[in-house]
Design a protein around this nucleic acid. Sequence first.
DNA 1: CCGGCCGCTGGAACCGCTTTCGGCCCGGGA
DNA 2: TCCCGGGCCGAAAGCGGTTCCAGCGGCCGG
Lengths: 358, 358
Amino acid sequence: MVAVKSSEKSPERNRTHVVTIYDIAKRAGVSPATVSRVLNGYPDVSLKTRAKVQKITQELGYQPSAMARGLATKRSMTIGAFVKVGPDDGLRHPVFQEVLTAFQHVVGEKGYDVLFFSQNGPALQREGYEAVARYRNVDGLLVLGMPRTDPGVIALSTCGIPCMSIDLDLIGPRAGYVTSDNVGGAIQAVEFLVQHGHRAIAFIGDKFATKPGHDRLIGFQRAVQEFRLPFRPDWVLDGDFTEIGGYQAVSRLLEMSELPTAIFCASDLMAIGAMRAIRDRGLRVGEDISVIGFDDIRPASMVTPGLTTIRQRSEELGRRAAQALLRMIEEPTALPSVITVATELVVRETVRPVVPRG
Amino acid sequence: MVAVKSSEKSPERNRTHVVTIYDIAKRAGVSPATVSRVLNGYPDVSLKTRAKVQKITQELGYQPSAMARGLATKRSMTIGAFVKVGPDDGLRHPVFQEVLTAFQHVVGEKGYDVLFFSQNGPALQREGYEAVARYRNVDGLLVLGMPRTDPGVIALSTCGIPCMSIDLDLIGPRAGYVTSDNVGGAIQAVEFLVQHGHRAIAFIGDKFATKPGHDRLIGFQRAVQEFRLPFRPDWVLDGDFTEIGGYQAVSRLLEMSELPTAIFCASDLMAIGAMRAIRDRGLRVGEDISVIGFDDIRPASMVTPGLTTIRQRSEELGRRAAQALLRMIEEPTALPSVITVATELVVRETVRPVVPRG
DNA sequence: CCGGCCGCTGGAACCGCTTTCGGCCCGGGA
DNA sequence: TCCCGGGCCGAAAGCGGTTCCAGCGGCCGG
């Protein structure tokens, strides 16, 4: 009898039946529509009904379902993120970490969660970026450090989903981006070197696959021109934006017959590699060869001597991207924005006045 | 006429109507059920129908909807992640980054994406962790570095959703965790110090809010006992697991009348702070005072002298957590596992043989 | 020759929630 | 007194899939 009773008279307490708004409705003697209304805070419900529904909602331990809601609403309160993966990239890259935390913080306040797409998943491999984003029904997209060489990534700019990218110039009707003033920052770096008497300056960059790499080289060249420095093509090397790459590039550089007095590395990681290369060569960084980096990642302040560098305001990058994205999501007519945030010179100890060579 | 035609004769091409399996079904002259079957690769569909449906699916540019599928299926192919936020935590913490990338990599292969819950969102604040996880219908949970002081976090261990945590001992019917062998690692560290003749050893830890902090202290104490070292309570200090905390703790330490010959820091960040404090005090790290850290984060190899430390195999932590989680998700009867992964000593330059004091 | 099984397919009931449309009731102005 | 408008609420049609169940025809064994 007990068994019968429990399975017939209170079917809503069955096994693991999740409680729905129908359960609430039945128990409160109202319609599901009304329950939905109070749950969503619509105004046109009498105080009495509202109170009753809320009470029962509590009692039953009701939990809404994002999937059901999303299906009906066509909004998921989710931001999808494509972030570059690689040995020194993605979650592993200090700049990106800051960007991401800041980003998540501001979208989080509005109730969004962020979904990291796995880039080795079968779906992405087969269907491509846009398909995955659409599949998950994300309200917006963050694209972080992805290479511009991937056509699938470029396609995101025209897919209609609001989209902000960082370090990649995706623009489209619903796509904008934010980036540091990389060329300005590079000029800043060279200028600082020049102020210390350096005129023989090498540049370590990347294969120009990334926008920052490209822009920083542009900035370097522009500065060379502006300050009428000698330009030596064999002094611009590829360091792949990694520590080891920087090490190798500078090792090669130091074997040349004629040496620069300063090295501008387009990333701190490369700069740190460069510093090691210099030391391994028996030279002193600062005294013998000045080094300046770019990014101002955490380790820059930890190494000795402290790395002078151009700081990216990563927290601001993330914040601005988030704000712009939210705007695009919330007002369908909002135009996409391209935002560039200024860099700032942080001087530590790796740049010293040039001393005349023997 | 044209207008009429386009709005009456081909309603499926209306505005932005997303194409559904019904559209495919109609066009292929089959039922939606059949379409669903071929889309999901069920075997019981004739080759002819299958081919036709696939062709039309292509033509129409059909995209499935995760929300609809999830609603019907009760699976979301999503792993939810709660990761600690804080100035030196979460995405910003080097160990966690490795863990996360590895984790995402392995779950990604199985088609899962990972959803980072925003911890400042209104929902989480109001409803709590479990509610949010349930709301999003995640198939599994990753809990990373969350404090054990939060009852909401503890509750996750019994919420029924498969759950793996790292650096936090959540266990329950569907909850396990993976952690480094923190006490073993700490013993390893002390042992190495002892082998170099050190007997006066200080310990910098945290407020014991975190499991790693707690366990490393336990390990330290156990080692002290084992090697019959003098135990000085005033030589165990709180460094808050941050660089600045380590700096401050060691600064205080160095003002004492009697100094240890070596310092064991329960994290590399603190160790790096410690190194700076030692230098600022006019002492040389290594020569005057040895330092050993824990974690082996990237900067550990970048500072000079290179930091000797106990490495956490973070990549393995993430991988194992992912594997265990997948197992729990895929086989409902799988028992939760608690996994501990061994640490490994990496010797660089901050530990030197003790020299007798003046 | 007939019953039954098997391969294939369609019908339809969900999954849990939102939202439009309209109805009911009540108060107030004409 | 009648009508209109507004506050409150219910019915029902989706949103896009999945899956159980039943049905149909053909083939095989008895």
